[in-house]
Nucleic acid binder design. Sequence first.
DNA 1: CTGAAAGCGCTTACAG
DNA 2: CTGAAAGCGCTTACAG
Lengths: 338, 338
Amino acid sequence: MRRPSSNRKATLVDVAKAAGVGPMTVSRTINEHPYVSEATAKRVRAAIRKLGYRPNLAARMLTGQFSKSIGLIVPDVADPFFSIVSRAVQQAARKAGYTVWLAVSDGDPATEKAEIEQMTNHPVDGIVLAPVHSRARHLTVAAAGAIPIVTIDRPIESASTDSVEVGNQAGARLAVEHLRNHQYRRIACVANDFHLRSIRLRVSAYEECVRREKLPITKVILEHDEEVLPAMRSLFRSRRRPDALFVTNNVCTVQVIQALQILGIQLGKDIALVGFDDPDFFTLLRPPITAVRQPITEMGQHAISLLFARIRGEGPAAHARVTLPAELIVRESCGCSG
Amino acid sequence: MRRPSSNRKATLVDVAKAAGVGPMTVSRTINEHPYVSEATAKRVRAAIRKLGYRPNLAARMLTGQFSKSIGLIVPDVADPFFSIVSRAVQQAARKAGYTVWLAVSDGDPATEKAEIEQMTNHPVDGIVLAPVHSRARHLTVAAAGAIPIVTIDRPIESASTDSVEVGNQAGARLAVEHLRNHQYRRIACVANDFHLRSIRLRVSAYEECVRREKLPITKVILEHDEEVLPAMRSLFRSRRRPDALFVTNNVCTVQVIQALQILGIQLGKDIALVGFDDPDFFTLLRPPITAVRQPITEMGQHAISLLFARIRGEGPAAHARVTLPAELIVRESCGCSG
DNA sequence: CTGAAAGCGCTTACAG
DNA sequence: CTGAAAGCGCTTACAG
């Protein structure tokens, strides 16, 4: 008792029959090729509407067309940095008629490797990637493959791809120099994810600034999953108790603020703080947090333009390395008054 | 000067030739069919490795296989609620060997419609959707289509699909009753996105609670894009100046807190507040915010199980409607002491 | 301007 | 346990 054709999605051939033309004419009409007479095109479009025809993307891809889709792989969508990257990438891609496959690597290189492979098999036309680690064999392999990759936030060190990142050193200098202008003398740096080049650059810029002033260097480098509270407690009990803190990313800054609250150390009064990264809610805290802001949306847009240039085969032979400037947003946690 | 085959991705036929078997044997080996002798399978696997063969997913889909991919459409990935939904959906899907295609509707029904259509053409095996509006013609159409849809946070009112949401009314009651226990008498409700059923339910639960106590009902319903500051200013200048606030979602709560700060009204002292939704940073605010927490990760996981059941054709005939309980997280903005 | 043929890389029957 | 044939729904040449 099944009805013959309403059961089944209409195909291009169904449309051709309904319109009384060859399949090629339907194909041309869909793809807006010039050589279709308006009269024929009209009949075809009517048939398409009548049958509710939708082109099958899988079939189209099989004939070597672009999939008009790209992959996006980030460590965590819930990290405000990456959620904004995701939004920017998705919006820019959509404007170009592209679709985005999202994968979360969860900070796990094996997962990342599997996600890249899935996308490669899909296949997507290109990938925007924020790698878990800057060096990994599977990244070297992927970068050498046929599918263009653009990294965001974290360039691959073991291979060459187009990349977009923020001026990490300059951004960190902005923060530390601002603290110096407040005359703090014991500026400590707190960092996690030290395996990332971006973090190492921020820390090294801190060191340079502080060394230049002949002030003591105090670094608290947190191991993966290490608790921040004990580290902060011992830092503030030590002889090197700081009067100012430079924290190298948003996740770490949140943890440090929490620890300070528990320890009863008052931000802006007992201790100054400038963070790298500027999530929206920093304005809600008391005192509001002074922070180095990355131009995240622009970074996402740049990544997409670089990727599309590669996809179109227009990219320069050498790989582009885009560095966008960070900006210091002065609020009150640094000691400035509101 | 191009090398004949290393230029081009290896296909199943290439593998078959290299292994000296028929294409079907390769196909069976890949798909782990039982009837392949171990000796043959070994040779095939060796050839696969040697040629770096990866199955072409487009070709596989064309033969009517599942795409092993699902779509996820949310209004905004940068909203903490949806970023956590995205993470949960993505992780649950990956565990099942599924890939997630993310689309952001940006709160625009036309964009949403286009995204659904794209996904339908792909085709994906199913869609997890948080609709922009609860009623829309394109949703009715989509819900009637062949591809299973599960809604999250926002059921479609104009059609029936499996859905996952939080207990909106019960959650709101938790909030308002807690404020009542503090003996506040002028409890106002602030809401945006009133077109969403979830918000209307939260507001109506507020009304019931307050009416039952014979207390005055004060609602501030913000229009889309309406500024919160002027609304708050006039609320606090009016004769109906509240002593407590119930705010119906995270975005609105943030805006209200900002407005209160600008107006110099001290949270927890001049005014009590309980918000619906509990983003992580609420613990960092002073006072920390008392909030109704949704089990977001569980909601995402439930959505995925419902969807996979439908995809496997196992779902019950009637559409499931899962409601998960919200929880009140008592902190200090309600007037409790820390 | 239009169409018949061949093929993209797989898999599902159908034979052995 | 293994393979040759046919087909999934399109598009790219190649003819007219």
